[in-house]
Design a binder for these strands. Structure first.
Lengths: 198, 198, 198, 198
DNA sequence: TATGAATGAGATTTCATTCAT
DNA sequence: CATGAATGAAATCTCATTCAT
């Protein structure tokens, strides 16, 4: 177990260092040396633990997605018997959880998004995550409206959530969690209340 | 005039080749050699016309933003005396103009967005564009609701538009212009119709 | 003859531009484009008139050496019947002629000296010039002292002249012609007056 | 200590290789690849140890100047209580120390001199060295003659020393240390003995 | 005769990875 | 397990030369 402990620690250390490096200088300039320096270790260790830089980047994206998924899942679990709207709000809240809206996470996330366009490994991760969000949203919306309308509502809310992240990551002040949450919730309530008369 | 023609032609050629290269392999792997090959010229010519790779990338981003701005502006100009809602729809339509939603443009745009987080030159361009969109939206919404509400509406619609772009750029099928336009318009009409009773 | 005039003019223009460029940025950074810009012509013309950059550099060195030789020769010619000391002084004066001690000339000269270490074409020119100075000095000293002593005196005076040029080219203030001439003359008079008693 | 040893060794190795390369093909053609090949290492290592080619060149010039300074200083130290003339002779001897008059050193020195005309970093080094020689010479001459005369004597002797180096570096046979030393000493003794009656 | 657009060779530098210690 | 010295591939940029106009 001490071995596992050391290995786990090192991996977490390096993943955190990767986010910090990307936050600081961007994915393109996040060299292994810079990442290793952030973690206080030598560059060679990255190949040792992750098989190479790509492995580290993939592990980092995995970490971000799983943290995000967890933030959503734990909130939904706490509201298993609540109304669909409450659970949709929980999904929104999970996406703007305070652990998710700090600069290293948002910048790294956007960097991976862009990168995933041309890296199959990252693309797969991103698509799984996407589908999960969409299916979660659809599931809840379906209890409030017909399937087709629910799909569109899910698309619309997902786009708004991602758009708020995107604009937050790029803005000078960083992502404003409270305001984003509020705007997303308002959008949600309009989607629910303002359905075309069927 | 032949000289000017050659220079302008080459520049357009290289900018188009840059988008194609980014569409194909991503910004990180869009080397000058690959870009030059796409344009059917030698790599050295890029430094000759743009002073270096950075100059070419900046020019490419400028081109995308100006094309986008033009698509919006021409539509708005045609509706100078229409209702605010019509003009807001024109802004949406401009953002999803068929010339804007092809893969080379959307992928390049997202790549630049990510890159702009750490490149001051690109960041400046991106912020100018952002402010322009926000101010256009605000201007119209202000005629339909109080200032604060208008600001939030502008933020919400802008986030949705960007989110639809983002998700379109990342999806396997590319950006679906018609659906995106429809979702954005529906969001707009809800923002206008479903204001909290003051 | 008009053709010849144009050709001669262009060549002089380009040689002068070469010196100016070397004076400004050094031999290593004196690119054909910079030289051409100094002359107000296009870069391609250099290959046309000199066969290439090397040809231009060689022609420039030739010009400098011939100007220097002329400055010395004309002074000596005016003193054909004077004493050897007078004629040696004339050689010194020629080497520090005001046309020779301006920055473009001294800097270019030193640059060529360094370069001539590894360029046979320039080395040949430099050696011819060297031998000419040495033989001129020897010829005069031989009338004042035994051959071996004369050779040493020539070596000593030549070294001092070159050393004064070298230090002048490198000093912040440039070559001080008057002082250099004075120091060289004092050295000369000591060489003549202070011979070991034979 | 093994680490330090490796670093110091590599740096010395690369500096020596730089001189050899410059001796062989000149500064202009002394590429990092050639230098690295001389040292039996790869080219990338130069950036690793010196931050780039410029750093290596500066370190090489520093080495030459410090070796030269040391050769002079050790000789002067051995003659602290001797006459000024003896100490001046020691300065001359130091400048023509057998470790200094070999081709890689003289050629590299001249190359740097020429280069220093337009490279501030090298220029600074060269000026410091110059001032040191001048001040050393002045200090000794001042004990033998009035200040103004001493300054001129220092200038004259310095020019002769440099001129002998220069001509030695350029001559086909290389610098003849014995003859140069003799000529410089004769110049020195004339400067001391043949002062104008005050 | 003169231009300058274009090429292609070559130089420097960066960087992920490997490996001996 | 960990280091960091070293490599070699790849990328950008510069520049002399050529050639169509």
């Amino acid at each position: 177990m001490p071995k596992v402990g050391v290995e786990t620690t090192r991996r977490q250390q390096l993943i955190a260092a990767t986010m910090k490096a990307i936050d600081e200088v961007g994915l393109a300039d996040a060299t292994v040396i810079r990442i290793a320096r952030h973690a206080g270790v030598s560059a060679g260790i990255i190949s040792h633990y992750f098989g190479g830089k790509d492995g580290l980047l993939e592990a980092t994206m995995r970490q971000i997605l799983s943290d995000l998924g967890e933030a959503v899942a734990s909130r939904r679990a706490a509201l298993r018997s609540a109304t669909p709207q409450r659970r949709l709000e929980a999904i929104i809240d999970g996406n703007f959880d305070c652990s998710q809206v700090v600069s290293p996470v948002t910048k790294t996330w956007l960097a991976f998004w862009a990168s995933s366009m041309h890296k199959p490994q990252l693309q797969r991760l991103q698509r799984v995550n996407d589908r999960r969000l969409h299916s979660n949203l659809c599931h809840e919306f379906c209890q409030l409206m017909p399937r087709e309308a629910a799909r569109d509502a899910a698309r619309s809310l997902a786009a708004t959530i991602d758009g708020l992240w995107l604009r937050g990551a790029l803005s000078a002040e960083g992502l404003d969690g409270d305001r984003s949450r509020r705007l997303a919730r308002e959008h949600l309530s309009r989607l629910i209340n303002d359905q075309p008369a069927s």
